[in-house]
Design a protein around this nucleic acid. Sequence first.
DNA 1: AACATCATGGTACGTTCGTATCACAAACTG
DNA 2: CAGTTTGTGATACGAACGTACCATGATGTT
Lengths: 212, 212
Amino acid sequence: MPKRVDHAERRTEIAEALVRVAGRRGLHAVGMRDVAAEAGVSLRLVQYYFETKEKLLLFGLEHLAARLGDRVAARVRAAGDNPGPRAMVEALLMAALPADDESRTFHHLYTSYAVLSVNDRALAAQPFIKNPNAAEDAVTETLRRAQEVDLLEPGLDARLEAVSLLAMSAGLGTSILVGQRSPESAAAVLQHHLDRIFRAHGGAASTQKAPE
Amino acid sequence: MPKRVDHAERRTEIAEALVRVAGRRGLHAVGMRDVAAEAGVSLRLVQYYFETKEKLLLFGLEHLAARLGDRVAARVRAAGDNPGPRAMVEALLMAALPADDESRTFHHLYTSYAVLSVNDRALAAQPFIKNPNAAEDAVTETLRRAQEVDLLEPGLDARLEAVSLLAMSAGLGTSILVGQRSPESAAAVLQHHLDRIFRAHGGAASTQKAPE
DNA sequence: AACATCATGGTACGTTCGTATCACAAACTG
DNA sequence: CAGTTTGTGATACGAACGTACCATGATGTT
């Protein structure tokens, strides 16, 4: 049986098993044995590809962040081949809302990791500062470009608006997660705020009606 | 030694020990023995006053929510004997930001519980829907009163603004918690957004200095 | 004074968890 | 073909955890 095997691929499979089972039962309740069972391999194998649980968790977080990034990028791409600034920002923010099962899991686990990172130096490093900062920069840059072609209300501070939007999106995401708010109502709140920032004008391709 | 003892008081002491130790080491890492040690009692005692760990956690959450409520109320009261709507909203939102150690612990643990509540029906019930809804109602009501005396920019939807503000505050809180943003910068973002909603006018006692 | 009840301590039990160990077959290397 | 490396299984081990059990002194009641 033991043929040569691609470690990276194997690790990814196991990490995805981790994400699945953690999404179902909560990150705190996941053990090595659960991950092994979910991945359909033996406990020993999980140990073999990640020597320790902490390394598994760490890799799981990186994997999760990467997948989240992919997802956002896909949404932005899906907004059209040359999307306007508003459509782009909208896609980015909406992708971050836990609307479907997959993004719900993302949000749930990302928050779980965030909580762990408060007490675990190793988890804190990258994803909770670098990634949000990247998102902030991206939104800021998009807003700046919108400003240059006069698509924004005058007198706005692009970075400040970017931070506000992302904070709002994150906060709304959490309230969806705990069941306080529906995804639709959260999306409406975001739309409303975008309406306030972007100038209303005739024929743009962004504020259509009901998204999926 | 065994004299008659006030159970409620005892339970509160233990719950506060739970909050302290959980704030230090993370909720996931707290066991009965840790709580007992922190409270300076025996393991048996913790078992005696809360038969099961789940009940301890549940009570801890209730206690935390109540203390958080007290804290917000105190901040609002501290805003003056008859604070204007803006000062009131400001106090409420700022109190929710993890600026000092105590509110940092609040935010940390509240988020921990929120994550647990996704998979634990018993934890979900009250605090993550009822309390936020109450806050939302309070802010909405305050904004409505501000509208009546023409303190807001015209044409705003009070409830929508309240939701936006609270979501932003929550999102900023999390980013402070994970170390992405400073409390000062988060406060500035909130102030900026309040400036946009409330009409600028001469002598209010709220929007003092410069952001960043 | 006798007795029930309350508060508390100590400790044992069964489980689960992360990790380590032993064993072995397949695949590559020379 | 011999030998080393690599992938995989089964299982054992020690620690920690939540809970249960047993004991006992203090308090209140009759």
